[in-house]
Design a protein around this nucleic acid. Structure first.
Ligand SMILES: Nc1ncnc2c1ncn2[C@@H]1O[C@H](COP(=O)(O)OP(=O)(O)OP(=O)(O)O)[C@@H](O)[C@H]1O
Length: 1122
DNA sequence: CGAATAGGAGTTTTT
DNA sequence: CTCCTATTCG
């Protein structure tokens, strides 16, 4: 194919990218490249190429993403590249999601029942606490904190150590260094106990999914079909994940060699005996999960372990403007350990990065909200809310931002923060469902055996648990026996056994309904009714919001069901695995019957283990696993159907797969419905699969009837992948479900920097760029600091067109009781902040020490971000053209006119008025409100910036245009372009500048030398509770005149008063609850996610979105290749 | 012994 | 703010 024009699905790649995407599929490939260089695009294209060009069956290709969200996006892109059918057959998901599917399907191979439950972080924590309790909190006489145990155990699991391996290693280490090991040896005791508890409850925690996954993939045959594995974000994998990757990769060796149909044009070369179908992409600069035991060194490890690994670099950034890229690089380059890399963009330099200091966190939030509005208007709608993201160091920082956005009537969504599944009412209901599915799951039993109150108190529960353990049964089973009276159990009080009746019956009802194929929503409904949950909610308070959540859960259940029907997700993979195995004529279950020991050392290719390629030697077992299937795969691939026409190709194989599938043997539950359902629809193979997942009605009996399945799986029936199981799994595995929550309309995205990894947005605000925040105050080790720096780098590189780094001079930390803490600019940014040059700028003192910032000081000038703290970049037609270029978005006809009009309209709003109004410098300077802290738009910023020559080296595209100074917007604002008032600020009592002799960074943890007058908890108390809702609404500017608020009108209006009360009301949590008083029409747009959370305490203004989600066009999603 | 209530402490980042 | 613990009342 050399020389030929690339096929259309590869047309969107640069030459370098194309080369990477089409690199030989049989040698290990590493794509190491910076942000925005198209790594993900290449990986996606490569998957497509393997299927379309190299004719791999989609089900033989494993694609691992970092988050569920990323998996969804990749799925969407692949839809377009290779079609929905093939896409759905790929094995695509996070390591966790992928392994949970393998475990459900093949878990029996490692004696794991397939109805196991996945513990969420909370259950896991509780279980570890319980384990710790068995030692009275002090195993081996060492008092341990639960947190400590959780961390150490997770750490061990991330290193692929079970309790035994952990203890063994520790004892080895103990020989050399006894003291530090003692504590962890105590943890090992807890680990043993925890492990045992997990087994009893038939549960796996998150780490187990990987750990057990390793064990499973080592079983012969499980990955005997895999021809290629692709992993995204490899820099953030942990050791266990590395092993998983290796096991997949090792399997590909023999599978590839055994598949002549996949031979490259010239046949295998000697190099190909190293054949490994492995492609990973990553960027060490973006490794931000070491705290979760990720090992960047996995990149090197792979390079060393898989000989012949080909390394490809991509140096062109397709995402960001020159200004953004430059500033970002200046941040990350401060890392002296870092390996320098080339990265350039051919995009215009664009608008300079804005570094904005704010008096307070709320001022910061207000700045962002008003700036979002302004940009939408001033770009004439070229940008909409979806183009904006606000990135935070931690979730709690979202509060102020959300509040301000609400005040401006800007809809927003919080990524990842979805606490929905953490709410008690949800957990309760899910616990009932879980008990029906997995009666051994003690955490669920404990949670709801007395919910609603059944007079089964703590003591009784403990007695029941003890009794169950004594009898060697699950508590739920014990309860069932007690109720059914089949066994008389001594020592159970009659009151308790009577009380258990309703509980047991409720679970039984769910179980039987589920067996009859009832929808999950119906099951939830059944629980609610049979236990009287609604009444219970009324009793415990906050009924309305909780009840809404319940309804939302029911809604969500239907949604999951739908998405499963549409083949979008879930056990799909299992189907594909099944099919692949069928195709390979490989039936592990049959082999199991024969019982192991007869693994063929001969792979059918004349290679022995010793001669096996390097990768296969990574893990001996893995090598063998691969060989087991080698012969079968060879047979398969040898069939003469490798036609050019890939439609034919697939369908032919498909037919063969069906032909060869043993009729009933493998997993009855799996095969049967398909056979039955397909004719019904008379439809394609895929409809059959769809049915397979959902049509679980009255299959239960059939599925376990007869053969071998029953004995392998002890306590509970080896049922079909039921809707219930799928649903529960989705609930625990997806903290990420908010994807679905695209209700109507564009929304600003709020996310943590971590959660934003891999995403991109037109405009990004990084908030709280302060010492203590970035780096986070708990990061102390150099390695931790470096990770914090990279985190900021990741955040900055999410931006395409405009980047704002904002920080606040003071901010309330934690609980509240205290006064605001003084904060200073992050050391990561200080070296870039240029001060003095721009309008008597307000900046950190020139001599500010930026610890840990090595290296690039000399470059600081060239890389400087104008420290024009009060500037909002002016937007003109030229900038809009740049935006359109970078965003790859056409400028509509008549855009300029639209722009002028929208600008004009905007300038008439109170939001604009508020922007023009001088902003307060700090809380402490409230008394000086209006005394001349300037604000306004700078139309010169970009000119000066460009004039600095700091970006001369970038792009040279000529795309960047000088602003026409004083463009249409400027007139109204020139009067406000006053920057001279930093001295005012200092004089007002802000300690940083004035009292510390300019050493901002030296005072970060010290008390302010000047206590702001009049601002005290007393004032806060006065402002909030003593006011009526109406007063507060008025004070907050929300208006009380019938509640109809004109867009942009109400919220900002009365701010002039700006006394403490109104200032505070805008800042106190009390405000949000009053928003509920507003009629819906005027209610602020909800921050939405799916399912909608109704937090009883803070449900202010949130309205339940009952509409169907719209699946497409998620903000933050990368642009799809054409 | 169970239920309800009050007080206290701890709150990064996530699969 | 929310989870856990201690206390008190029934
Ligand atoms: N050849 C190309 N031409 C035009 N746009 C491209 C090209 N390659 C990638 N892009 C675009 O550049 C952006 C970044 O691509 P992508 O997300 O794949 O990069 P990445 O390296 O994975 O980034 P990150 O490391 O930040 O996750 C996307 O919007 C993508 O569509």
């Amino acid at each position: 194919m050399a020389g030929a024009a690339p096929p259309p699905y590869l047309a969107a790649l640069s030459p370098a990218q194309l080369e990477a995407a089409t690199a030989p599929p049989s040698s290990p490939l590493q794509i190491l490249a910076g942000p925005g260089s198209g790594k993900t695009r290449v990986l996606t294209s490569r998957a497509a190429w393997l299927v379309l060009e190299r004719k791999m069956l989609p089900e033989d290709v494993v694609v691992i993403t970092f988050t569920n969200k990323a998996a969804g996006e990749m799925r969407e892109r692949l839809h377009k590249l290779i079609g929905p059918d093939r896409t759905s057959r790929l094995v695509l998901g996070t390591f966790h999601a992928t392994m949970v599917r393998y475990l459900r399907r093949f878990g029996r191979l490692i004696n794991l029942p397939n109805n196991f439950s996945v513990l969420d972080a909370d259950d896991s924590k509780k279980a570890i606490k319980e384990a710790l309790k068995t030692f009275d909190g002090a195993p081996m006489g060492i008092t341990l904190k639960p947190e400590q145990c959780i961390n150490e155990i997770s750490r061990a699991k991330s290193r692929e150590e079970d309790a035994q391996a952990f203890a063994t290693r520790l004892r080895r280490e103990q020989a050399t260094d006894a003291s530090s090991v003692a504590v962890r040896l105590a943890v090992a005791e807890v680990y043993f106990e925890y492990e045992a508890a997990l087994e009893r409850m038939n549960g796996l925690d998150f780490d187990d999914l990987l750990l057990k996954g390793c064990a499973l993939l080592r079983q012969p045959g499980v990955v005997s079909n895999v021809l290629h594995v692709l992993v995204d974000e490899f820099q953030d994998t942990n050791t266990t994940q590395y092993t998983l990757m290796s096991l997949f990769a090792a399997a590909t060796t023999s599978n590839l060699l055994a598949a002549p149909g996949l031979l490259p044009p010239g046949g295998w070369t000697s190099e190909d005996t190293q054949a490994v179908g492995l492609s990973i992409v990553g960027d060490p600069d973006q490794s931000i999960y070491a705290w979760r035991n990720a090992e960047v060194t996995n990149l090197e490890k792979m390079f060393g372990m898989f000989s012949g690994t080909r390394r490809v670099k991509l140096e062109e950034n397709f995402r960001s403007t020159g200004a953004i890229l430059e500033a970002s690089l200046r941040v990350v380059e401060q890392d002296t350990e870092r390996v320098a890399k080339g990265l350039y963009t051919s995009h215009p330099a664009g608008v300079p990065v804005v570094l904005k200091e704010n008096a307070s966190a709320s001022a910061e939030a207000a700045f962002i909200a008003t700036e979002v509005k302004r940009l939408v208007a001033h770009t004439g709608g070229l940008l909409d809310y979806n183009d904006f993201a606000v990135l935070l160091r931690y979730n709690a920082l979202s509060r102020e931002v959300e509040r301000s956005l609400q005040q401006e009537r800007i809809p927003s969504r919080m990524l990842g923060g979805s606490k929905f599944f953490d709410r008690v009412e949800i957990k309760d209901l899910l616990a009932y469902l879980t008990l029906a599915e997995n009666p051994s799951y003690t955490p669920a039993f404990v949670r709801v055996v007395n919910v609603p109150k059944r007079a089964i108190g703590e003591k009784s529960v403990q007695d029941l648990l003890a009794k169950a353990e004594e009898l060697g049964v699950a508590p739920m089973t014990l309860a069932e026996s007690i109720v059914s009276g089949s066994k008389t159990i001594k020592g159970v009080k009659p009151g308790v056994s009577k009380a258990l009746k309703g509980f047991v019956e409720a679970v039984a009802r769910v179980r039987s309904k589920a067996a009859k194929g009832a929808a999950v929503s119906a099951l939830i409904h059944a629980v609610v009714k049979s236990v009287g949950y609604e009444a219970h909610l009324q009793k415990i308070g906050e009924y309305e919001s909780r009840w809404e959540n319940v309804k939302e859960l029911i809604n969500f259940a239907d949604l999951v069901a739908e998405s499963v029907v549409s083949g979008a997700d879930e056990d799909e993979v299992a189907q594909q695995i099944r099919r692949a195995r069928d195709a390979l004529e490989l039936d592990r279950l049959d082999e199991d019957e024969v019982e192991a020991g007869e693994e063929d050392e001969d792979d059918g290719m004349g290679l022995s283990d010793d001669e096996a390629p390097a990768a296969a030697r990574v893990k001996p077992e893995a090598g063998r696993a691969a060989f087991t299937s080698g012969a079968a795969l060879k047979r398969m691939a040898a069939e003469p159907d490798e036609a050019d026409n890939d439609v034919e190709h697939v369908s032919t194989r498909e037919k063969r797969a069906r032909r060869q599938a043993p009729p009933v043997k493998p997993e009855p539950a799996d095969v049967k419905p398909r056979i039955r359902a397909a004719p019904q629809l008379g439809a394609s193979k895929d409809s059959a699969i769809e049915l397979d997942l959902t049509d679980d009605d009255d299959d239960e009996a059939g599925s376990s009837s007869g053969d071998d399945s029953a004995k392998a799986l002890a306590p509970s029936p080896d049922g079909p992948p039921s809707a219930l199981r799928t649903f529960l799994q989705a609930c625990t595995l997806s903290t990420d479900m908010q994807n679905e929550g695209q209700d109507e309309g564009p929304k600003v995205t709020i996310a943590t920097c971590h959660a934003a990894k891999g995403l991109e947005f037109g405009v990004v605000f990084v908030v709280g760029v302060e010492e203590g925040n970035m780096p986070f105050y708990r990061s102390t080790e150099p390695a931790e600091i470096a990770e914090e720096r990279r985190l900021l780098y990741v955040a900055c590189t999410r931006a395409q067109c405009m980047l704002y780094l904002t920080h606040a001079a003071e901010r309330f930390i934690g609980g509240g009781g205290r006064d605001a803490a003084e904060r200073s600019l992050s050391r990561f940014v200080a070296p870039l902040a240029e001060r003095g040059k721009h309008r008597g700028g307000t900046g950190p003192p020139a001599g500010a020490k930026a610890s840990g910032a090595g290296g690039s000081k000399s470059k600081a000038k060239a890389a400087s971000i104008p420290w024009n703290g009060s500037t909002r970049p002016a937007i003109d037609a030229g900038i809009c053209r740049d935006l359109a270029t970078v965003l790859e978005r056409p400028l509509p006809d008549g855009h300029e006119e639209a722009m002028v009009k929208m600008k004009k309209d905007f300038e008439a709003t109170t939001t604009a008025a508020a922007i023009r109004r001088p902003e307060p410098v700090s809380r402490s300077a409230m008394s000086q409100y209006g005394s001349g802290y300037g604000s306004g738009y700078s139309s010169h910023g970009s000119q000066e910036y460009s004039g600095d020559g700091g970006f001369g080296g970038f792009g040279g595209s000529g795309g960047y245009r000088q602003n026409s100074a004083g463009s249409s917007s400027a007139g109204g604002y020139q009067g406000y372009q006053r920057y001279q008032s930093y001295s005012t600020y200092s004089a007002a009592g802000r300690s940083t500048g004035a009292s510390s002799g300019g050493q901002v960074y030296d005072v970060k943890r010290s008390k302010p030398s000047f206590n702001p007058p009049g601002f005290s908890s007393a004032a806060r108390l006065r402002a909030a509770p003593s006011s009526t809702g109406r007063e507060l609404l008025e004070e907050a500017g929300l208006g009380s005149d019938g509640g109809i608020v004109v867009e942009g009108d109400a919220p900002l209006k009365p701010r002039p008063k700006a006394d403490l009360a109104s200032f505070e009301s805008a800042n106190s949590a009390s405000l949000s609850s009053f928003m509920d008083l507003l009629p819906p029409a005027a209610g602020p747009s909800a921050t939405s996610s799916t399912p909608q959370i109704r937090n009883p305490a803070t449900s202010g203004g949130r309205r339940l979105g009952t509409g169907r989600p719209r699946p497409a066009g998620a903000p933050g999603a990368k642009r799809a290749a054409p």
